[in-house]
């Protein structure tokens, strides 16, 4: 059986305008994709991304609102420079930057999240796994490691 790439999906809680899309993301994601809802993409720390990568996720997708339509004024732009530069740095040390993808959803992009995830999944399958960062060792049961 072919294993699907593991995708950590950071979703801004406002970016899915249509209710069915949000429902799908909330309830019907395949097990290979994990939803991490955040209040704004501007809230995502580079450490979150790094941890998803080092935790063994094959890809990280971040879906948020278009900057001019951000729920917190233009807040999601404030972290944008960080994320962009973080990807530059990852690329510099030889990590595939394509494994981290930003998607900006517009209000009228009904159904786009499904397409984007499928597309990302395909893209991840094409990428080689040679340069992935060292993964964290799993914490012993019961011990606080998070």
């Amino acid at each position: 059986m072919e294993t699907k790439p593991k995708i950590a999906l950071f979703q801004c809680q406002w970016c899915l305008y249509s209710e069915p899309d949000q429902y799908w993301v909330d309830h019907n994601l395949p097990p290979s994709i994990r939803l991490m809802k955040v209040s704004c993409t501007g809230r995502i720390n580079t450490l979150h991304i790094l941890n998803a990568i080092q935790g063994g996720a094959d890809g990280v997708m971040i879906s948020g609102c278009r900057p001019e339509k951000c729920h917190f004024k233009e807040g999601n732009l404030s972290a944008l420079r960080q994320h962009e530069e973080f990807l530059n740095l990852l690329d510099y040390i030889g990590y595939e930057r394509d494994r981290v993808r930003f998607v900006w959803l517009d209000l009228q992009d009904r159904g786009r999240i499904q397409q984007e995830l499928a597309d990302f999944e395909n893209k991840l399958q094409e990428l080689s796994t040679a340069n992935t960062l060292a993964t964290r060792i799993n914490a012993p049961e019961g011990e606080v490691h998070v």
């Binding site: 305008y17 209000l107 009228q108 009904r110």
Partner: peptide, 15 residues
Amino acid sequence: SMITEDKETHNLFVH
């Protein structure tokens, strides 16, 4: 405030 479209059926959703 908005109309969205289902890309496949071209049905419309009035919000």
